[in-house]
């Protein structure tokens, strides 16, 4: 293990914040170094509980988190918050503003919050999000709150890594339920109608309830009405989260999250392997243009049935 890896692993064990922070950066940027750091720290089967929040932009996810987190801390949890925001597909840059509404909740020693940009990831979650969760878990955080990009689209990713999924909606989104992309309603465990102080919140709750009556298992799902301005319904929501967590099959959840991560890593490694193959056979692949279609060429590349180039062995 390199000195950097050793120092950071040591820091994580102590719960040192700078080490946690640096490790999450490494998870984003240097997967190989990250894999060395966690090798000695990862405790199989010890996935922390993950509360995932998703929902359209502006429905109050960040504010809600700022009210829920202190209550989870009161219950004795060490809480990690991972907030994901979109990277611009044009510049690659992003504006990570989730902290604006959270600062007060974050001042506790028992809370660690990190903003992560999607950096081109599809599906609402950054590729490195599980790595951030693993890092926080290694540093002793037992409950992680994940706020996903409020796109509403393909946010089903969040279901794979969360033990409880909250879908946050607010009144005045029009045909709230209709507007939600298929898939989102099915993955949520708890439906939150936030901004309940606004007119139309009961109607929104009613629409969710009637939608739920049409899907299997929908009747068992909870609906919470919350208002962050008056703090109404927050305690009830925290109770519903606790209830759902107590019903989660820990083994099943750990397996599901693990599968999702193995799949992501395997895809990343195979994509690197393909890049290396293409680099190593660039000339030969070019020559195939004369004799076959691109599907046939890709198949031959993957079978290793290709001539005229040195096959560069991928590292892993």
């Amino acid at each position: 293990m390199t000195d950097t890896a050793r120092a950071i692993a040591e820091g994580l064990r102590r719960g040192d914040r700078a080490s946690i922070a640096r490790c999450i950066s490494i998870a984003e940027d240097e997967p190989e170094l990250f894999s060395r750091i966690i090798k000695g720290l990862y405790r199989p089967g010890s996935m922390p509980r993950v509360i995932g929040l998703t929902g359209p932009p502006g429905c109050g996810k960040s504010t809600l988190i700022s009210l829920i987190v202190p209550k989870l801390v009161e219950q004795g949890h060490k809480v990690g918050v991972v907030a994901v925001d979109a990277s611009s597909p044009f510049s690659g840059g992003s504006f990570l503003g989730n902290r604006i509404r959270m600062e007060e909740a974050l001042s506790s020693k028992h809370v660690f919050m990190r903003s992560i940009a999607t950096r081109g990831a599809k599906g609402g979650l950054s590729v490195s999000i599980i790595n951030a969760i693993i890092t926080l878990a290694s540093a002793g955080f037992d409950m992680i709150v994940v706020e996903s990009v409020g796109s509403g689209q393909a946010d089903t990713d969040i279901a794979n890594i969360s033990s409880t999924v909250l879908l946050v909606l607010s009144p005045g989104l029009g045909d709230e339920v209709q507007a939600m992309k298929a898939g989102i309603m099915e993955i949520a465990d708890i439906f939150v109608i936030n901004k309940a102080e606004l007119e139309g919140s009961d109607r929104a709750a009613g629409a969710v309830r009637s939608y739920l009556s049409t899907i299997s298992g929908g009747q068992n799902k909870d609906i919470a009405l919350t208002s962050c301005t008056s703090r109404r319904g927050i305690d009830e929501l925290v109770r519903l989260i606790g209830d759902h967590e107590s019903k989660v099959n820990a083994k099943e959840f750990a397996e599901r999250a693990f599968r999702s991560e193995v799949s992501r890593i395997a895809k990343e490694l195979s994509s690197r392997r393909v890049d290396a193959l293409i680099d190593g056979h660039a000339a030969a692949i070019g020559q195939m243009a004369e004799s076959m279609d691109p599907y046939a060429a890709a198949a031959r590349l993957l079978q290793g049935d290709i001539e005229g180039g040195r096959s560069r062995r991928p590292k892993r």
Binding site: G92, G93, F95, L96, G97, R99, I100, E103
Partner: peptide, 18 residues
């Protein structure tokens, strides 16, 4: 914030008066 973002940076803005 906008200029930094458009220059490809990840901008963390914690709100007023930290």
């Amino acid at each position: 914030a906008r200029a930094f973002r458009d220059a490809g940076m990840e901008v963390i803005y914690p709100g007023l008066l930290p």
